[in-house]
Amino acid sequence: MKLQVSATRMELMNLKKRVAVAIRGHKLLKDKLDELMRRFLEMIKGYKSLHQEVESLILKAHNHFLFARAMMSPIDLHEALMFNPENQVTVNLESESVMNVSLPRIQIQGELTGGQYGYATTSADLDIAMQLYKQVLPKTLELAAKRRGLELLAAEIETTRRRVNALEYVLIPNIQETIRDIVMRMNELERSNLTRLMRVKEIVRSH
């Protein structure tokens, strides 16, 4: 679709500048899209392996916990696990910038203090379960951060792709079409001017 501009030399110059900028921007955005895509696929690979690890660990932990619950009396279990109400995991939420997208990173602050209870009335399965839960928590947090990062990257990829396509298929062709049109009009004007001059000259000569 042609742009609504007047067919003047000035406008032609401006449009030529605009198309040069658009082509440069398109190239840059396309490079950005390629790099984002590469990082995205890399992150997916990491996510999938971490996901499997977390899944198997947490299911194992749940199994041990259920065994422990079956073996112990509910009172003992509650007493063991709810003994320390002060116990609270605090995490450090940071962000890392990848291609101008800030990806979250979570780290646990200090040591995990859960699972401190007397061993007299508790089952060995509970120890194993708590150990596994402690092991799986940092990985789960990493997984959550990665998933969020993937979401953010996906959104960025989508907008970048839309921009690249808009430049490639709409803006650049439109400007180029307008430039072609202006050049053709100016040529036409020149030709009509020339024929007018020739005609005038002929009339003058005939007198």
Partner: peptide, 28 residues
Amino acid sequence: AMIMVLPGCNTRNKMGLKELTAIVEKAV
């Protein structure tokens, strides 16, 4: 928010990659 879905103690279903598939589909 940053929400993480885990298998529960009672169901012990596998976590599945359903939500990730949607993200990938959006991007790629």
